[in-house]
């Protein structure tokens, strides 16, 4: 194994891999790689190469730059990039069980609440850098292209049924790829999107953002909140379950009350919403 600090070259028989330090800044990696290859150009005159990017997230142009450094400074051909995206779901999506601190005596079952860490849900430096670099690369690409400043946020993904008694407060958007069952509570400072049936209690824009929305494939939940407004399903929605089962729904605040309409895109104009005022 040859070592140049941030770039390791591992040769196993006829296979060769370049392994790049996950934590080194991109410019350093690029520089090191160029140095190494120009010094040893004779060694790498021919062959295919795989690059292991590890847990870092590189923008497409960064990948292209690495490829071009290698191909212009040696006779090698980059055939494959290798990522280790596991860090994204194990690290970032971890829900930590810990005793609640604000639960009064009315909540004796504090031990089983699911509470997120106060800060952004980062459990390791590695996963933090992965998420941050995605966001940064997306943002910088936008700026470069002079694109309209879209909102790009760190959403929390929940990939299993959110059940009765489970509570969550996240300082951003929350996406649930399952049902939110009755008795479950989710508070998000941003939007809440449920790829399933939303039957529990949710509060979008929990820190006071009335522009937040709730989107769900099914929205049978009888009560939910956006910003400071409370939505209460009209009695007819209970009587006619079909009304709530007609495709994805969006709940939003309009003229100081919550309305629900069939979902037609995050920024569509919603004119014909059903007022959720009981």
């Amino acid at each position: 194994m040859l070592k140049t600090g941030v770039v390791q070259v591992i040769a196993r028989g006829t296979d060769v891999a370049f392994v790049i330090d996950e934590n080194a800044p991109f410019d350093v990696v690029a520089g090191e790689l160029k140095d190494y290859l120009s010094k040893k150009s004779g060694l790498w005159s021919k062959g295919d190469i795989t690059i292991n990017v590890g847990q870092r997230m590189l923008a497409r142009d960064e990948l292209a730059k690495i490829k071009s450094i290698i191909e212009t400074n040696s006779g090698l051909k980059v055939t494959r990039f290798w990522f280790a995206p596991e860090s994204l779901d194990s690290g970032d999506l971890k829900i930590e069980a810990k005793p609640t601190t604000d639960g009064g005596p009315a909540k004796p079952a504090a031990h089983n609440e699911v509470v997120l860490p106060e800060q952004a849900p980062q459990t390791s430096a590695k996963s933090k850098s992965a998420v941050e670099s995605i966001i940064e690369s997306l943002k910088s690409r936008q700026n470069k292209n002079g694109a309209r400043n879209r909102n790009i946020t760190e959403a929390l993904f929940i990939k299993s049924t959110f059940r009765s008694g489970e509570t969550l407060h996240h300082q951003g958007d929350v996406v649930v790829l399952a049902d939110v069952n009755p008795g479950a509570e989710i508070r998000a400072d941003g939007d809440i999107v449920v790829f399933g049936s939303l039957k529990g209690w949710v509060h979008a824009g929990a820190s006071g953002d009335n522009k937040a929305v709730i989107i769900a494939l099914e929205l049978p939940s009888p009560r939910f909140q956006i910003g400071k407004f409370l939505g209460v399903a009209p009695v007819t929605a209970h009587r006619q379950p079909k009304l709530s089962a007609s495709g994805p729904q969006i709940a939003y605040v309009r003229s100081r009350s919550i309305h629900v309409a069939p979902f037609a895109g995050r920024f569509a104009r919603y004119n014909k919403g059903v007022p959720y005022d009981g």
Binding site: A97, N112, V114, S160, T161, R163, S164, G165, E166, N181, P182, G183
Partner: peptide
């Protein structure tokens, strides 16, 4: 069923 749902959550955690 509500109670069962709660129990499943507790068991999982």
């Amino acid at each position: 069923i509500r109670d069962a749902d709660r129990i499943i959550g507790l068991l999982e955690s």
